[in-house]
Amino acid sequence: MAKTPEKSLTRREREIMDIIYRRGRATAQEVLDELPDPPSYSAVRALLRLLEERGHVKHAQEGQKYVYAPSVPRSDARKSALAHVVKTFFAGSVDQAVATLLESAESSPTKLSRAELDRLSEIIERAKNEGR
């Protein structure tokens, strides 16, 4: 049975996970090649080993290389990361987090479209009807 990943990641671990999620799978060298201000190859291998021990990635051996892939779907990782942000920065208040996102979208060059706002309204209405 797969281990449930620990929630918090360091900045460098998040960068590595972003690369692996974006690529779908990657070797240590491929991760190293895409990291900004990369550490040594040995450091990347050590970080990948730690991420695997903590349940974030798994590996398959292909020849002499280990190829790493996420151990949980990106959608699950998003939910976990978002829950962590809401707990850490908004004291668990979902409404404050959503309000902040919507307010920042108003001043953003990429404002929410009418269709996106309608979709959010539908989600909120469904949650009301389900008693959430």
Rank of each mutant, 00 (worst) to 15 (best):
E13F: 01
G55Y: 03
R54H: 04
R49S: 15
S71D: 12
R74D: 13
S80R: 14
S75W: 14
A77T: 01
A26S: 02
H84G: 12
S71R: 06
F89Q: 14
T88I: 00
L51M: 10
S8R: 10
H84T: 12
A105W: 05
R25T: 08
A46E: 15
V98G: 03
A69S: 15
E130R: 14
R74H: 14
P109D: 05
R78M: 12
E52I: 01
Y68L: 03
D33T: 09
S113F: 05
R114K: 06
K87E: 11
M1G: 14
A105D: 09
Y21A: 09
K111S: 05
E116T: 11
I124M: 06
Y41Q: 14
I123L: 13
R14C: 10
E103N: 08
G92C: 04
L112C: 05
L32M: 08
A97V: 00
R54I: 03
K87L: 03
Q29P: 02
Q64F: 10
P70Q: 03
E53A: 12
K65N: 11
L48E: 02
V72G: 08
L32P: 07
F89H: 15
A91P: 04
G92W: 01
V98S: 01
F90G: 00
V98E: 05
T110R: 11
T10L: 08
T110Y: 11
P39K: 07
R23M: 14
A46D: 15
H59C: 05
L117V: 12
D37G: 07
K3T: 07
S40M: 04
E106G: 10
F89G: 12
S71T: 02
L47M: 15
P36M: 05
V72Q: 14
T27D: 06
L51Y: 06
Q96I: 00
P5R: 00
D118R: 13
G55F: 01
R49D: 15
A115Y: 04
R54K: 08
D37S: 12
E106Q: 14
K65D: 13
R54Q: 08
L9T: 04
V44K: 05
P70R: 04
P39V: 12
T4K: 09
D18W: 07
E106T: 11
E13V: 02
V31G: 00
H84V: 07
P38L: 10
E53S: 10
A46S: 15
E53L: 12
E34F: 04
S108N: 11
M17H: 11
P5N: 00
M1A: 13
S121K: 11
E122V: 08
P70W: 03
I124L: 09
E53Q: 13
Q61F: 08
P36V: 07
E6H: 10
I16M: 06
A46M: 14
R22S: 14
R23T: 09
F89E: 15
S40Q: 06
Y21V: 09
E34K: 09
R12V: 03
D76W: 07
A46T: 15
G63Q: 02
H59V: 02
L50E: 15
L47R: 13
S93F: 00
P39L: 07
R114T: 09
D76I: 05
P70A: 05
N129Y: 02
V85N: 08
V85M: 11
H84I: 06
V31C: 00
E52V: 00
A83E: 12
S80D: 14
L117N: 10
K128W: 06
R78V: 11
I123K: 06
K7P: 11
R54V: 02
R22F: 11
